Every structure is written in structure tokens, then in C-alpha cells.
Simulated assay, not measured.
Amino acid sequence: RLEYVSYHDGLTGLYNRSYYEQELKRLNVERSLPMSIILADINDLKLTNDTFGHMEGDRLIQTFATILKKTTRAEDIVARIGGDEFVILLPNTNEQEVTLIVDRINEFVEREISTKIKLSAAIGYMTTNEIVDSIDKIFVIAEEAMYHQKLRDKQKQQADILNIIEVSYRERFPEQYLMSMAMVDCVKKMLATQNVPVQKETDILYATQFALVGLLSDERLSLTHEKHRIAEHGYHILKNVPAFRDVADYVLAIFENSDGSGKPHGLHSADIPLASKMIRVTLDYYSLQSQGLRQKSILKKLVKNVNIVYDKEVLDLLIQATKEKQDEKIRS
């Protein structure tokens, strides 16, 4: 029992790093040649943990581990060597054979539908036909191949991550999602009066759309209780999208107040991004509207908080934008 624990990963039942390193040295002999090594890295594990919690992240790891067990042979050494990293040692396996095994792993991964976030992995491999001075050289070459695949798939992965976030948000919080889309339309009108570069405008509109995406991490949160934590969770989810660094920063600052009394950092007006100010006043406007308040009552409440929560200039932009929307309704 003690020997099993010392050589196996507790979460997956696969071998652990210690056993892998021991076997790597043992197999660096002529009778194991040709020897191949496969290195695999689960994509989006951090996103899974940030969005759905670590239990779902563990399930993603276990699902991938099961696939590796199913697609390899009894003599192969399958190990989990890090949080999302796996390695397979394949003695007496040439390049053609290892390619077939990698193809089989990819087929099983593609068919897997049991996890909340679509399972995907970057895989690299290397075959040696001779004993090497440093067995780590094989690992490094396999690792480089894996990272090259990650780079090749980067654009698709980013689109997949964004789709995962949007679909999860829309399905689990349909009311908030619909409100966020109305907010996007309003903020777009506010931005029309500003000289904002196209890319920055795009980022602001994404931040508006995903202002409440932090609810995915903890649905017990609400806009009436510790609402800044929604922004904090949203920040951690959105920063998983490489192109969303600014978007994540805008979301984090949504619940900062003009007078410095907001959270999480107590920023004053001059330090709060304009995007965050626009999103905040628009979010509060639509939240009050969802409570059944009429336009006059909503604006009265918002005006009371000028220079406390909102900047007057930003509130004026909102008032103009909502007036335009009402005029459009009348004309239609």
C-alpha cells in the first residue's frame, strides 16, 4: 500500500513524477529501443477552475487520464507529472507506432462530451533509436513539439474559450445575459460621442457584455450583496482569454466609486477607467429598470449619487443614450 501511494498520483491513479523519472532512467537501454515519449498538456484547465470550480477541473483531469489509460498499452508508462501535464513512455515503439497512438488519443478527446468545458489537449512526441547521454533531451524535444501545437492552435483555442464563457453565461444566467446585451447597445451609444479607437471600443463592449460573468464562479453572489466579488471573479475568468487583458481590467473596476469608497481597490474617479464608469452607471440603470422603476425615478436615484458613485459627465452620457433609445422606440 505504501509503495503504491509513493509511486501513484492520488487524483488519477496514474504513475506520478517520481516513478516516471525512475523509469525514464531504467528504460534508457538498448533493449528498449526504439523508445518514444508523448507529452500532453490539458488546455483551459485554469479556465475550468476559475469558471466552474476545482471539482470540475479535477473531473477534466480524471477524464483525460482515463482516455490515456484506454489508448495506451500495458507496457507503456503513463504518468501525471504536473497539474495539467502528462507523459507517456513507450519502449520498443517506433515513430509510426507512436503516431497511431497519438491519433487515437486525439480521437478519444474529440469524442469526449462529459465535461462542462470541452476537453482538449496539446500533444507532442519524440522517438529515439539510440541511447542518449541525457534522457531529458528527448523530453525537451517532445515538449517543444507540444508547445508548437499550442501556438498553432492558439487562435482557435481563444475562440473556443470565449465561446465556452458566453454559452455558459447565457445558459446559466439568461436574465442577466439579456440585460447585458441591452447594456451593450446603450454603452455603444455612449461611446458614439467619444473619440475612442476601434479596438478599445470593442474591448469596452466585451467588458459590458461580460460585466456579470463572475456569477459563473459563485451563483450565490448578487448585485445587492458583495457585488465587487462578482467583478473579481469575472476578472479571473476573462484574463484566461489572452486578448482580454484590458477587458478583464475594465470588469475588475466596475464597482469602484468616484469618491474612492468602492471596491476592490478603493480607486478615486481619476484612476477608474472610463469604460468601467460607463458600465457601472449602465448596469445600475438597467438593474433599477428590472425592478419596475420608471425612467424618472431611475434617473432621480442615479443623480443622487453623482460624485459619490458616478461622474456627472458619464451620467450625462447615459441620460442622452437612454433618451435616444426611447426616441427610437417612439419612431418605430
Rank of each mutant, 00 (worst) to 15 (best):
R73I: 09
T63M: 10
D284S: 01
N240C: 12
R1Y: 12
L151C: 00
K116P: 08
L302Y: 10
T322R: 05
N92C: 09
D249E: 08
E143I: 05
Y235G: 11
L299D: 09
L221N: 00
Y15E: 05
K325Q: 14
K69Q: 10
V184D: 10
Q155D: 10
E175Y: 13
A211Q: 07
I254G: 09
S290C: 00
P264D: 07
H268Y: 15
N240E: 07
F86C: 14
A159H: 14
L317V: 12
S36K: 13
V281M: 03
K239W: 13
V309Q: 03
V198F: 09
K188C: 02
A275P: 10
K296G: 03
H54C: 07
V306F: 14
E85T: 09
E112P: 11
P273I: 07
K200L: 14
S134H: 15
A145L: 04
E226C: 02
L288G: 02
Y125T: 02
L191G: 07
E324W: 08
V29T: 15
V78G: 05
T72G: 07
N305M: 15
Q158E: 15
S217M: 00
A159N: 12
I101D: 01
D316V: 10
V314P: 08
S18P: 06
A207D: 12
L205M: 13
V198Y: 11
T115G: 07
L2M: 08
E21C: 11
S114Q: 04
Y4N: 06
A207T: 13
Y310R: 06
I42W: 00
A74W: 10
Q155H: 07
Q289Y: 14
K188D: 12
G292P: 03
E85L: 03
L119G: 01
S222Q: 02
Q320S: 10
K277H: 13
V132D: 03
I298P: 03
K25D: 13
K69T: 15
T66M: 04
G266A: 11
A248V: 11
L283H: 03
L2N: 12
F108P: 02
S114K: 05
D84Q: 01
N43C: 02
I237D: 10
Q291I: 04
S276N: 11
L302S: 10
E112V: 05
I230L: 03
E85N: 03
N16H: 02
F108I: 03
Q149T: 06
S180D: 06
I330Y: 15
D271I: 00
T63V: 15
H236Y: 13
R152D: 01
L318M: 02
Q62P: 13
M179N: 11
I77V: 15
Y285H: 00
D103S: 08
Q62L: 08
V247H: 14
M126A: 09
L60N: 05
R59K: 10
I77M: 12
F210V: 06
E3I: 09
L238T: 02
N106V: 00
V132H: 08
V78A: 07
R1M: 14
L191E: 04
M181V: 11
L252M: 12
T48G: 00
S114R: 15
Q289V: 12
I77K: 14
P242T: 02
L162A: 05
E107S: 05
